[in-house]
Design a protein around this nucleic acid. Sequence first.
DNA 1: TATGAATGAGAATTCATTCAT
DNA 2: AATGAATGAATTCTCATTCAT
Lengths: 202, 202, 202, 202
Amino acid sequence: MPRPSNTEERRQQIVDGLLKVMAERGYERASVGEIAKAAGLSPGLVHYHFSDKQEILLVLVEQLASRARIRVTMRLARVKGDDARAKVDAFIDAFLATGGDAAPSAVASWVTISAEAIRQPEVRAAYDRVVKADLEQLELLVAAVVGKRRARTIAAGLFAAVQGYFVLSASAPDLVPPGSAAGTVKRMAAGLLDTVEAREDA
Amino acid sequence: MPRPSNTEERRQQIVDGLLKVMAERGYERASVGEIAKAAGLSPGLVHYHFSDKQEILLVLVEQLASRARIRVTMRLARVKGDDARAKVDAFIDAFLATGGDAAPSAVASWVTISAEAIRQPEVRAAYDRVVKADLEQLELLVAAVVGKRRARTIAAGLFAAVQGYFVLSASAPDLVPPGSAAGTVKRMAAGLLDTVEAREDA
Amino acid sequence: MPRPSNTEERRQQIVDGLLKVMAERGYERASVGEIAKAAGLSPGLVHYHFSDKQEILLVLVEQLASRARIRVTMRLARVKGDDARAKVDAFIDAFLATGGDAAPSAVASWVTISAEAIRQPEVRAAYDRVVKADLEQLELLVAAVVGKRRARTIAAGLFAAVQGYFVLSASAPDLVPPGSAAGTVKRMAAGLLDTVEAREDA
Amino acid sequence: MPRPSNTEERRQQIVDGLLKVMAERGYERASVGEIAKAAGLSPGLVHYHFSDKQEILLVLVEQLASRARIRVTMRLARVKGDDARAKVDAFIDAFLATGGDAAPSAVASWVTISAEAIRQPEVRAAYDRVVKADLEQLELLVAAVVGKRRARTIAAGLFAAVQGYFVLSASAPDLVPPGSAAGTVKRMAAGLLDTVEAREDA
DNA sequence: TATGAATGAGAATTCATTCAT
DNA sequence: AATGAATGAATTCTCATTCAT
């Protein structure tokens, strides 16, 4: 009787280890040895469960994305009725509202991943897939307010603002007025979506 | 009679080399050897002109910032009269309008620098200084429109949007509608600055 | 089932490698690569077992000191009765009598270590600790002959003579009359300890 | 009319620079650049005046030796009459009596040179020459007291004690009773030279 | 003579990955 | 599954020495 596989548990420990180490040292300097230590495992085991360091990063990208998707789904579910405008705000809140569960290391890691996406093709592909899915969802929500024609551009703008707040809060946290991110982006959304001309587009 | 000093020229070549290599390989993988090769110099010379690799990066941060300041100054100079609103737009254009001189490698490097700022204290300090100066300038421009009370928050939001476009255009360029960045952020500015409530704050 | 740890064995091989290489090349020129080769190991492994080159040196200092302590203990054990004078001679013999086990590379290394102690604080601390312990032991033996008052000075003088023979035999071996070291220092001890005035101090 | 050569002055500055830097960093880490800086000269000039770094060291060895010879000559000149015993003491004082002119950096350098003599053949040759000359002079002085037969051995012993005090005072200065060196070695000399048996040898 | 830029050969150290057990 | 020793390539940095001026 073989012992029950704990592969998934181990892989999760390792991914968590990378998240932790990467948040404070970046990807290149997150050595496999440190990841293993943060995971409470031996270095050799990391390569038993992952073929190489990059694979861990790719899994982390998926996990961060999936957690974001869950937050979005939960926020959308709370919107009463079919309020299209409220759904856009819910999306923004899902990314920026810090409800006690603020995850600075996730944000720092995400910014690091953005930078890694510039050079590592596989990381770029994964990053692209995630951003594309987020953007498409936001575009749909925006289109329900102002119509398809300008939805893509507006969605990109709002998403850029979200990403920008991530960067600033990770790299220059003292310069962002605390607690202002979600509200400001929602006001940006209002400006883009609620003016007369904008509505006419719909 | 000694040969005339060309230190500044060499330093500039090296900084340019870092910019070039970093844009396509990131900071960690931009080895001193590659930087030297990109600069057309011998590896040893890099350390003759810079005490270490980080010093090159810090100089690059300053140079990128200074080029941006020049673009801002030029755009502001073109604003006729004392049009406070137009000045905000000019600031945004200085960062996002791609007038043929689009510098994708500068953007990629800047995104990389943002990520490095998360862990290297000296880089963070330099990055902070630059962002702080930019934000303060934008805040002044915004305050001329809506008054001081909300200027900081609005400036941060607009600046975040700019940084977010940098990230997206460097890391997921296919997902940003081409040519839309400056216009969208300017429309965000309009939403934040031109509504009735906003004006009342002034 | 992991392979049984051979860390201690490896560390010893590496320390032995340093002793060997350092004796003929000095500390600075004993490159980690050469140490590894002398130990029959790969260069990377050296840094797996030691955090840096200096740590190997510090361990070597301890080992040389500990071997000397053993020789002293053995010589003292052979002294019959409670002959205080004979004990001083035994101490000197432990350092200088070359009974077939002459270890020229240990002497050369020790002289090198003395010189390194001048600049490397950690090496100096280790060297100091060792010399201090040796001196204190010799001081006790001397005090049993002439009393405490002059013991420290006499012990330091005899120990200096021992160290001086080390230097000369390592750096200018042809100039030391072979086999004369131990006898001469013991005669110095006699002069310092056995004269009428000296005994009166006791 | 050629400008008067300042070669000798420059060479002296450079040798002084090496003495200074070597005393606090050792020979290997005394880079040519630092030596030049300590000498107030440019790095290139060092190799104009010396073919390589080792040549500076060899000149320094000669200079340190020559200064010692001068001190010995001066002390011997002060000995009244033909007092053979007093001459031995004068020799010892020339090396160990610290009359305000104590030169700790010369001592540190000398200890460093002893260690370098172990591996660099040219340094060893120079060191040997110097030590040999010193020893021969001391041997003559000793022979005038106890006769030739035992002079070599006794001279070596006294010289070893002197060298040992150099090492200890450079490498573990806190462990040598201050001001005790010259007196102790002179008492060692007394023990070796003034006993009945010793005189009989003469 | 003098300068200081330039070169290129190491140096220590790090680390992803492999492997014997 | 698991361990941790082992490998070897890559990296940053140092430095004696050379060279153009």
